[in-house]
Design a protein around this nucleic acid. Sequence first.
DNA 1: CGCCATGTTAGAGG
DNA 2: TCCTCTAACATGGC
Length: 270
Amino acid sequence: MPELPEVETVVRNYRPLLEGRTVAGFTTRWPKNCLPSAAAVRRGIVGRTILRVSRRAKYIVLALDNGAHQLIHLRMSGRFAWAADHEKVETPFVRAVWTFTDGHALWFDDARKFGKIVHAPDLAAATAHLGVEPLDRTFTAGRLATLLTRRARQLKPLLLDQSVIAGLGNIYVDEALHMAGLHPLTRSDRLTPAQISALCKSIRTVLRTSIRRNGTTFDWIYPSGQMQNYLKVYGRTGEPCRRCRTAITYLKVAQRGTHICPACQLTAPR
DNA sequence: CGCCATGTTAGAGG
DNA sequence: TCCTCTAACATGGC
């Protein structure tokens, strides 16, 4: 389910539910998801009060009252469910449950079991591998130019690399490249300053637009998003480009399904 | 059955 | 050292 806009939407929805609540218990039915271990995750959060809920890249960050943090990554199919006062909400693929001292509960449902729950005594260390936040004010055309030019990589996989830019995923990279008129196989060190500037602007616009629409909804995993109705290329193979009416084509780039308008995104590969 | 999937990472090979 | 590609994780939907 999650790229940056979807995770941001989850954070905004769950912030008022979680902040100020104290964890009474934590159980997991898939211990492999817990890092460094299920015991460490449980010990790290039971008895703690959640002070703040925020987001770093695609991680949901719970700031605890002892200075430690818990990070949750939804990966492909993770989602939260909320149970009011002692209510039973047995979702289909429950992998973990947090219970709170007032009887409420948070459920982590994750069909594919790729999601991660991480105990982080040191938040900075736990997130040190992550690159720049694309919606941060430090993400400028100049900064992007440095990131692109210091390497000679295919543009799309570079934008998906979380250690370079943190938060973009398959949908929004395709959307941003289309908006900027760039082919996903363009070499990262061969963009003109104007193209880099356009790409920077497109990334920020696409992400902000999606957050405004509560993210993209494809299936039961992530309800209530509206961005799927506004996508320009992702999932639109064979349909006409909204700009030039040329049929959207599908290709594989770095093993990921990729959607482009072959007329609007003509920049030379290699 | 075969192929697809909003993510990430380890390992092989050039 | 850097880059690219494959396989793997595990499961559901079409």
